[in-house]
């Protein structure tokens, strides 16, 4: 493979991993109207959970169970679900914005644990040399990456199909009913709090699952991969793709991640070294502008053209 093709494979693995995160967030925001302001926290829980479960034993450390990768990923996703349950139970019966505040809070707390709880997370160094699933089967890293891309693509497709089915299932119809008219749903004997909790926890489970896939690919975890900016990036992907639209979520993930990497490349090439940090700020400003301007002028998203099922997607 040429350098570009190799890079493209690498790029797509990350973008498709994020697309699973975006689809999880879409379930929460696009289909249920829940504002998760701590996406990165749940992603990190999934990633660190996986790392601790699959990692090799370390002296004086918690974890290092050396479990098989699939069990690790599922364990990480389960931990993310647990974290979601903690904030969901506290807030989903309250004013909607309390969930936003609490998710923001848990993300900060998770970041602190990642950075400081060295026995579990490796601290600032992170956890390194984690086993990458089935690495020894392949003759070269390029082949392995191609394989991993296939795995991630299939999983993203499975998540996509499952979510498409879920939102048209009876459960999806109740979800829609709760969103459109809570009082009516309540009078039909549906418990809106429970429905919201299910949607929120399921969304966070997907986000955590993606975190595990991410670790399987890069082979280490470090706090630097889970900075708050990731939450904004994921949101930009969702908003640009059009919330309430799972195909848009995938397209948004690829589009925004492409924009981000290319603008980063451009800044590193064009700007003199002393202005690089300002360049980074400009890159982030672009993400912020993308979110705010899309909300204002293209509430249905830039990519998704399909009639969205979300009442949150557009002006009435």
């Amino acid at each position: 493979m040429t350098g570009f093709a190799a890079y493209l494979v690498f790029f797509l693995i990350i973008a498709l991993t994020y697309s699973i995160v975006v689809m999880g967030l879409n379930l929460q925001w696009g289909f249920t109207g829940l504002f998760n302001a701590g996406v990165v926290g749940f992603f990190a829980v999934g990633a660190y959970g996986t790392a601790v479960l699959i990692g090799p034993e370390r002296a004086g450390a918690i974890g290092g169970f050396g479990l098989p990768f699939p069990i690790g990923v599922l364990g990480g996703a389960a931990l993310a679900a647990l974290a979601a349950l903690i904030v969901g139970l506290a807030t989903l019966r309250l004013r909607e914005e309390y969930l936003a505040i609490a998710t923001f809070g848990i993300a900060i707390s998770i970041q602190l644990i990642a950075l400081n709880f060295e026995a579990l997370t490796g601290g600032a160094m992170g956890l390194i040399s984690l086993p990458r699933p089935m690495l020894d089967v392949f003759s070269s890293p390029a082949h392995y990456n191609l394989f991993y891309l296939g795995v991630v693509a299939i999983l993203a497709l499975v998540v996509y199909l499952a979510l498409e089915r879920a939102v048209t299932s009876p459960w999806g119809r109740v979800l829609k009913a709760v969103r459109e008219d809570e009082t009516a749903a309540r009078s039909l004997g549906k418990n809106p709090v429970l429905i919201r909790l299910q949607s929120f926890v399921l969304g966070c489970t997907l986000i955590g699952f993606a975190g595990g896939l991410y670790v399987g690919f890069i082979g280490y975890v470090s706090p630097l991969d889970f900075l708050p900016i990731l939450t904004f990036q994921i949101w930009a992907m969702l908003i640009v793709g059009g919330s309430g639209n799972n195909r848009g979520a995938i397209a948004g993930a690829i589009g925004v991640w492409g924009l981000w990497t290319m603008s980063g490349l451009l800044i590193s090439q064009v700007l003199p070294v002393q202005f690089q940090s300002q360049g980074g700020a400009i890159q982030v400003i672009l993400i912020g502008l993308l979110i705010v301007l899309t909300l204002l002028f293209r509430p249905r998203g830039l990519i998704g053209e399909r009639e969205t099922v979300s009442k949150h997607a557009g002006p009435r």
């Binding site: 982030v284 400003i285 912020g288 979110i291 705010v292 204002l296």
Partner: peptide, 29 residues
Amino acid sequence: RPLHGRPNDMTIVFSSFGVSLLVRMVVLL
């Protein structure tokens, strides 16, 4: 103000989240 009256009340909360990033980055810049 332009987002007021959007069907989902949380749209404004979310927009404030985006605005917070912008203000912080402008200060940094």
